[in-house]
Design a protein around this nucleic acid. Structure first.
Lengths: 367, 367
DNA sequence: GAGTGGCTCTGAATCGATATAGTTTATCGA
DNA sequence: TCGATAAACTATATCGATTCAGAGCCACTC
């Protein structure tokens, strides 16, 4: 082990004392020292004082959490599993709102939140999951039904997947992405928009760029991106519009979402048949689209309507404020945290969403 | 321990298998099974295959990280210590930028970031620190030289304090808050501003409200807030202005910073002697001051100049863009992470800051 | 043919605590 | 005065792995 020795004067080095050292110093059994820390009612107050004083004198740091974790079978930590670089995690407002909710619950319960090294899609992150000394996992990986879930199962610890697909028999928290984005799209359609376009999430590392017709449903089936796209398509087709006429823009995860939204939005706005309504799969992307519109002097909502998704603080800080799908991000985090904390059996929780109409959408411009 | 038993058919329940079970099943020693996982070169490839196959067959999750951690003396986790509710941590852009930097380094190193339950100022969070199975700590508590540091020392693990005071003999990363805020203040003074005001950080749970004259230097000495206030005072006095004439607004940590800045900014702008220059101790607060100015029709920078601090994304997303003190938040996180990772001895690192002049400051209006 | 070295594999000690099942002594009611 | 009960402590096994110091065996060298 790492030898954290310290100097105690002269030429004497000593390693960190253990509970046994304290026991010997006081002349009691290890059990009693342990009880002094964990079950004060099991020994006399006088002896307890003596033990704690001796411990302080020796510089004993208290019972080693790792050893205690081994014996007790609990570590008091839950792990968060993510499949993108962590620096991205700390930049995504939606995930941060989720984490704020989650950490609040665990904070109150005195449990730590271990943010694990990110899972690489190729190595399935097996080693990362296998090496984490935690009591359970929350997975916010975009694709849930793959080898990474298998690795979680292998670990034989409780886990909750967030926004994941229809995997059965496990704890899962999410929203109805499909219906929510259908609602958002229908909002535009109800306003008379007929030339729609989509800016899809950059996550999942699989670009969806191309006309909708070419976006394959296969591996996307269980992703947030895929579900939202399906919902948009539902609404478009329900309105009798040809899905193939709706351009879908997306790329892999190479740049921050707002500049990305601006770039993709620009591509859409520069098309010959300029869309009058854009469905963006996140507020950041939508904000980027607004940026692109502003650059081109395209008025929002006069000439262009934009809907976002998530209702993060961005939605209300941009101008015009975004019409967007509100989802209870903090509640999602709280729910996931509680499921794990309470050791819930396989449970599927679907939280409600709601379209928040603000200033970025309006009636379609005349032809 | 928690008994994660599983059903294997008939009426047989079995607990999670251990390395010993695998060893017995294959008919080899525990050492050899351990080597199969940790030192593949120590056994024949053929036997290793056989062991891994048996392990998979038994449903062995691999070596238990906690037991391994005990034996090896390392857990592969570093703990982050914070003294405010965690939900606040996930809302503060400056801290998030810091964490992004930190987590990036640890992500690459395969190390987990354990966000510990928040330390309550009253209980000194001793139990939280004592119970964390980590290899070291990063502390971003506002006040560093108090009982919480003592608790860290007690734990006898390496730790790095961030933005903390002048504690000696430990790893510390920070900036020169005092000089940086003096620079920002001097910028306003150089522009001819003579009626200044300060919006101080809400952190530290000790309100500084009142005129500067009444803000006591004592316990604030080692806080970020205190250092920045001292720097502002340095510049004000160097310019020959009476420090007592500079109103300082702050409250305890009861509301999110932007609305708080708006409220406090409003109070300042409604004074008979309206200030022409406001030094805000964070960009969020500064943005709130801009909000207050906009509400009152006070032109920025025509009638009012505002400087922020940190240079978070907020600084450039508001309008007008904020003149602010840029500090290398991500680098700060990276540095802290590396110090811990490399087991650096007591080191003090002070990173450079730089005033970024943008659109929120201009010449003082005529009298 | 003894000596050397490399490859596989093993046994026992160890990491630092907690749980379980006592033992001893004092207290108390009948 | 006896048995029962409670209070204060203890001895030992155990949690699940890794480390260290070899043992056995084979090939190869001089």
């Amino acid at each position: 082990m790492i030898d954290h020795r310290y100097w105690i004067g002269q030429d004497v080095f000593v390693t960190t004392p253990t509970l046994a050292d304290v026991a010997e110093a006081v002349g009691v059994s290890r059990t009693t020292v342990s009880n002094a820390y964990n079950r004060p009612d099991q020994l006399s107050a006088e002896l307890r004082e003596r033990i704690l004083a001796a411990a302080a004198g020796l510089g004993y740091p208290g019972p080693d959490p790792v050893a205690r974790g081994l014996r007790r079978g609990r570590t008091g930590m839950f792990g968060l599993v993510y499949d993108q670089p962590l620096s991205y995690l700390f930049t995504d407002p939606a995930i941060l709102a989720f984490m704020a909710g989650m950490s609040g619950v665990w904070d109150d319960a005195g449990v730590s939140l271990a943010v694990l090294p990110s899972l690489h899609p190729d190595d399935a992150g097996t080693s990362v999951l296998a090496a984490a000394g935690v009591d359970g996992f929350v997975s916010i990986c975009d694709v849930a039904d793959d080898s990474r879930v298998a690795a979680l199962v292998t670990r034989r610890l409780p886990f909750v997947t967030v926004d994941a697909g229809e995997s059965s028999g496990r704890c899962r928290v999410g929203i109805d992405d499909r219906r929510a984005s259908a609602d958002a799209t229908r909002h535009l359609l109800d306003l008379g928009h007929r030339r729609l376009a989509v800016v899809a999430l950059p996550r999942g590392r699989r670009a969806l760029t191309g006309s909708a017709g070419t976006a394959r449903p296969g591996p996307e089936r269980f992703t947030v991106s895929g579900a939202r796209l399906a919902g948009i398509r539902d609404a478009v087709e329900a309105a009798g519009l040809p899905w193939a006429s709706v351009p879908v823009q997306s790329v892999a995860d190479l740049e921050p979402p707002r500049p990305l939204g601006r770039r993709l939005g620009g591509l859409l706005l520069d098309r010959a048949e300029r869309p009058t309504g854009v469905v963006a799969m996140s507020d950041e992307l939508a904000a980027g689209v607004l940026d692109a519109a502003a650059e081109r002097g395209v008025e929002v909502p006069g000439q262009l309507s934009v809907v976002g998704f998530d209702d993060t603080p961005t939605a209300t800080s941009v101008s015009p404020a975004l019409t967007t799908v509100h989802q209870p991000l903090a509640a999602k985090g709280q729910t996931a945290a509680r499921l794990l904390l309470e050791g819930a059996p396989a449970t599927v929780i679907r939280l409600p969403t709601e379209l928040r109409v603000r200033a970025s959408t309006g009636p379609a411009p005349g032809p």
